[in-house]
Design a protein around this nucleic acid. Structure first.
Length: 432
DNA sequence: TCATATT
């Protein structure tokens, strides 16, 4: 990225401030919102944030105020102060991502001599403007890391310092010039972190063994209705089947019969090799054993021949559950374009005590044996990306949801018992 | 412990 310059919106001047507003009813218009916010502050513009493809409101908007003072007025008057009709909680009004940073005029200074003090850095940079904040990064023993962050009062000051010092000014006793650049934004840092995590993850291709405790605890059972599978008969080698590419499926699946052999999984999975590790594990109910399931199965295709409750005639048969360690598979569950697909009333589940390591895909897979999963969402902490251990699963029919509840509620998975209930419906409140 | 969403 080029240093020393930042992208800027055409439509708003340097001092205007963008606010992000959440809890906006999806049926409100920009004009309505503009009118409302203008009761509290000067507002230049309101932009509803819409789904890229459907153009439907995503329930939030941006508000552009001409100055920081006006923006603060809007925040103070509205944030958590009023709930718009149709919203489930009060308006959230805050500086949009990056706005505060943009107003900070924050620079990164590199190639500082290790022994340089704050005072010395300050003396140099004060030539170009008023320093609002300065910190040299230090390690555990207070040893300098040779770089610093510095905030100026105005952007012009920061630019002046950047132009004058970057690559040009050598501090006393140093043979290399200082590096001065705009500090990374939070977004840039996130992207960097994500990239690092990504590259680290790809160095450890087989993550299946990271969930050994889950395998042992899996509910008995199952044949995935929309997935093909490989099958390992007891004592036989692992066989795999590849699905037709058009089926939008993970490339490989393995199905490991019986719970008692669950620990065999740990021995089997790694043998598949890094480029061929299985995506889904299905563990069929004990009642499947000793039955026709010792024979080779036909492949299951989406919408295909394989009933998703093939042995429901057996009273002791336990529900379908599949564990998936998939990370990169597209799926039939509703996601991808952002918003969650919700099913009809009574077909949406709230699930608590989801194992920490479950993501959307694992949740979807674990619940897909009861019906067509329209969407599955595990909630994660915005900052850390860590699962909050609760989420939602939507089916297209209430009956599917009920059968998922009857089987999965109370089911022990990963140390805790799942809590599976109908999702609360905050929506259709009927005031007379 | 019930949808927090950044054009």
């Amino acid at each position: 990225m080029a240093e020393g310059k930042r992208e800027r919106r055409e439509s708003s001047s340097e001092e205007s401030v963008k606010l992000f507003v959440g809890q906006v009813p999806k049926n409100m218009t920009e004009v309505q919102l503009l009118t409302m916010f203008r009761e509290f502050a000067l507002v230049d513009e309101v932009n509803i944030i819409k789904d890229k493809t459907t153009r439907a409101s995503r329930g939030c908007c941006f508000v552009i105020c001409p100055t920081r003072e006006e923006a603060d007025k809007a925040v103070n008057a509205c944030h958590n102060k009023k709930t718009l009709s149709g919203a489930s909680s009060p308006l959230q009004v805050k500086y949009a991502d990056g706005e505060l940073e943009r107003l900070e005029h924050k620079l990164f200074v590199g190639m500082l001599p290790k022994n340089v003090s704050e005072a010395e850095v300050s003396a140099l940079f004060s030539i170009y403007g008023t320093i609002k904040d300065l910190q040299i990064l230090r390690g555990s023993q207070q040893t300098s890391k040779g770089c610093a962050f510095l905030k100026y009062e105005t952007k012009e000051q920061a630019i002046a310092a950047l132009d004058a010092i970057n690559g040009k000014h050598k501090m006393e006793g140093s043979s290399v010039p200082l590096v001065v650049k705009w500090a990374d934004t939070e977004k840039e840092r996130q992207a960097r972190r994500a990239q690092k995590a990504q590259s680290q993850a790809s160095n450890v291709p087989n993550t299946d063994s990271q969930h050994p405790s889950l395998f042992g605890a899996l509910p008995l059972g199952y044949v995935p209705p929309y997935n093909g599978f490989g099958y390992q008969a007891p004592g036989y080698g692992l066989m795999q089947y590849r699905l037709p590419p058009m089926q939008n499926q993970p490339g490989f699946h393995s199905m490991i019969p019986t719970v008692n052999q669950g620990n065999a999984l740990r021995g089997i999975a790694p043998d598949l090799g890094p480029s061929m590790n299985p995506r889904n594990y299905a563990i069929p109910p004990a009642s499947y054993m000793g039955s026709a399931y010792h024979l080779q199965h036909p492949l299951a295709y989406p919408g295909g021949m394989f009933s998703h409750r093939p042995l429901s005639s057996s009273p002791r048969s336990v529900p379908p559950v599949v564990l998936s360690s998939n990370s990169a598979t597209s799926s039939s569950t509703g996601k991808g374009s952002g918003g969650q697909v919700e099913g009809p009333p009574g077909a949406n589940l709230f699930i608590y005590h989801i194992p920490q390591e479950f993501g959307d895909q694992e949740l979807s897979t674990a619940f897909q044996g009861f019906g067509r999963v329209l969407s599955a969402k595990v909630f994660v902490d915005k900052a850390t990306g860590v699962s909050k251990c609760f989420g939602f699963v939507s089916y297209d029919s209430p009956e599917d949801a009920q059968s998922a509840i009857s089987v999965m509620n109370g089911f022990q998975l990963g140390g805790k018992k799942l809590k599976v209930q109908l999702k609360r419906d905050n929506k259709q409140t009927k005031p007379y």
